[in-house]
């Protein structure tokens, strides 16, 4: 599974870089969206599935049915911390995304274009 996740990370990251080097700010925004996924997938890979051969849905979810006693092996549940980290990252990513989208709206309104080349040319003129 780790390999699959790593491949997913590589592909999403690569595609998002491809999109971000584009000319249109809209596709760049899509790239940003994908970048968030890449980051989250990369972190979830750190939690190392507990049951290597047959991960069953939510069987080892980090939710306790009774108090966690010292004798119980840790490997019966997944590592909860990466999940918490991702949750934070998702929320922050959403906030940034939302702001970026609003920024795009205003940019296209003020500058009349979303093409980065045209924007650069315009900024040069202003200078």
């Amino acid at each position: 599974m780790t390999i699959i996740l790593s491949i997913c990370v590589a592909v999403t990251f690569a595609v998002s870089i491809y999109l971000m080097t584009g000319r249109e700010l809209k596709s760049i925004a899509m790239g940003v969206f994908l970048l968030g996924h890449a980051a989250n997938l990369s972190i979830i890979a750190m939690s190392r599935t507990p049951v290597r051969h047959e991960p069953q849905l939510l069987k080892g979810a980090p939710i306790l049915t009774e108090a966690f006693d010292a004798a119980r092996p840790m490997s019966s549940i997944v590592d909860p911390l990466p999940q918490a980290l991702i949750l934070t990252a998702i929320v922050i990513g959403f906030a940034v995304m939302a702001f970026l989208l609003s920024l795009l709206v205003l940019t296209s309104r003020k500058a009349g274009t979303l093409n980065v080349e045209q924007l650069a040319a315009e900024a040069m003129q202003g200078a």
Partner: peptide, 20 residues
């Protein structure tokens, strides 16, 4: 763009794999 993206993606993906 494709080359740059691929290289970066592989770098990050590989790092993930190594860390995991």
């Amino acid at each position: 763009r494709f080359t740059l993206g691929t290289l970066t993606g592989v770098a990050i993906g590989w790092l993930t794999l190594v860390a995991a």
